[in-house]
Design a protein around this nucleic acid. Sequence first.
DNA 1: TTAGTTTTGTATCGATCATTACAAAACAAC
DNA 2: GTTGTTTTGTAATGATCGATACAAAACTAA
Lengths: 192, 192
Amino acid sequence: MARPKKFDEAATLQKALQVFWKKGYAGTSMADLVKAMEINAPSLYDTYGDKQKLFLTALQTYLRSQHDWMNDVSTKDIPVKETIRLLLNTLVEDTLNDPEKKGCFMVNTVTELANVDEKILAVAADNEKQVQSILQNLIRKGQANGEISSDKNPEILAAYVFTNLMGVRVVAATNSDKKLLHAAMEIVVSSL
Amino acid sequence: MARPKKFDEAATLQKALQVFWKKGYAGTSMADLVKAMEINAPSLYDTYGDKQKLFLTALQTYLRSQHDWMNDVSTKDIPVKETIRLLLNTLVEDTLNDPEKKGCFMVNTVTELANVDEKILAVAADNEKQVQSILQNLIRKGQANGEISSDKNPEILAAYVFTNLMGVRVVAATNSDKKLLHAAMEIVVSSL
DNA sequence: TTAGTTTTGTATCGATCATTACAAAACAAC
DNA sequence: GTTGTTTTGTAATGATCGATACAAAACTAA
């Protein structure tokens, strides 16, 4: 019924995600996006809305894949502590292996915008809730099978792990001592 | 020998620091700074240089006060674990009590710029070195007086505490459950 | 007071910002 | 092939970006 789009919506969104991830919201110009996405400005606005909306869409896409990954790892049939070790260590590896050293898009966004944009704050709070939920389920499972003491509070343990998940993403940006970071994560696991 | 400045250099720098801290580097315009600092653009450039230089000066000022604070706390005559508990809990309190929820200026800067600005990366690496040094000294002191097992590696423990210092600054931006954060920090202390 | 120096205020620079008007081009349905 | 609809490319919008030119104003030293 009309002229079809020349580009793939999802793939082009991924390109925008990469730019926002690397340069942040304010640090990214529409010209940057137009160039990276290889579409013209009018196509961009028509398909994804304005800069804010595109950013939010990119962020949600990122979070979904992040959650999917965590859920995948969490449903593996291995000990709970092994699972949490895998989560932490994979983050260290991924952060250090990224040649662009982009860190975590959610962490970057929280530190840039959560205090000045309520919508972003809501997304961040929701993300925390979801990740905490995944972690709590893991910990309860560990308590059920005897890996973790039932005396401990799952909510607190989850918050503790979450803090380390966030922290290691920041630290890995300036410290590339892989062994040291893995050793620090090992303390997290062994203190559960 | 000439017309004196009408403003206080250090106090006006503090105003710039507050703006950069709240809005980030790219999110801050020179117009924002001129307004907050209550000086004219030419005075700003003449005294502090361009935007980049002013930002770096503000960041260094922030780091110096941060290090001074850590050193002050570290030289208190209390048990080492108590000191580390105080460091972690004070960060939680300060972050939650700030009505502007600015978080940590260093963390914000690392996540915004460390991957695109080598000068910032160097400052961040240097900061990590200094904080790690303070933490390592504390831990060695704890090992000397029997608070902490001498079997443990001070460097790894310091990296572990550092990760939690960074992490809690990010988490406190979206989770304002004070009790939960304090409880999580308590795990950090008790795992030393 | 006068000479010399620096700061201040105004006003503006070209460049870049996010966003869009408009018309040619490209498709689907008939 | 014609009609109707949407996308595309070009080009430009006003606003804001970081940074300065210039002259009046304000001070010190003599």
